[in-house]
Write a protein that binds this DNA or RNA. Sequence first.
DNA 1: TGCTATAGTTTCTGATAATGAACTTTGAGA
DNA 2: TCTCAAAGTTCATTATCAGAAACTATAGCA
Lengths: 107, 107
Amino acid sequence: MNFENQIHGRPECTVERALDVIDGKWTTLILRDLLSGTRRFGELRSSLSGISPKTLTDRLRALETQGVLTRQVFPEIPPRVEYTLTDKGRALGSVVHALAEWGAQWT
Amino acid sequence: MNFENQIHGRPECTVERALDVIDGKWTTLILRDLLSGTRRFGELRSSLSGISPKTLTDRLRALETQGVLTRQVFPEIPPRVEYTLTDKGRALGSVVHALAEWGAQWT
DNA sequence: TGCTATAGTTTCTGATAATGAACTTTGAGA
DNA sequence: TCTCAAAGTTCATTATCAGAAACTATAGCA
């Protein structure tokens, strides 16, 4: 059982609160891909080479819950689902950009 | 800028390469604390409330290996060890800053 | 009738991270 | 001699994340 939230509540530190949203490696990479525009499930699955459909679904649902992206289902056969960043999600561009710049200069 | 990734070897994408260094929640929080100056093991242990000494040691050693920080041991009893960011580590300030700003505005 | 396509879901399994508690080392001071 | 402090280490256990493979639903098409 996890009483972390009960003990600490909403973290005071804004860095910690941000990290609660972008947790894990795949999450940031999904953000990276969606920053250049709306993508379908299958498109993300290809560009994030190596991700399993389960993990991709998990991460997308978590980001949707946090309000970082929206999921639009088109009632077609075969199904079409599009993922788009919200304003909140697009604002994370600064974080992804900072990572990219650091990675370019120091790694 | 190129956000696409490559299948073989060292990732082409600079975001991915950056994420190889700052992996996990604690790592970023350690960075946050060291950005305001040199800290001792015990100081980090207190400011990162809840971290176990094993985890703190593991993360600090990994960051040292990546060249993000230096570890200076003073031959005293009881021991004193100081952790300081390198230029490479200080450059991650932009990432931590972007996280803080986003967290402040959107969470 | 069977095939295809997309966007998943389900179940099982494994790797990595992190936790908690107890223990270690060493010299100085009571 | 006993105790204390700092910075760990060690061991056992749990939590979390991720992966592989198989399965589902449905309409259009040949």
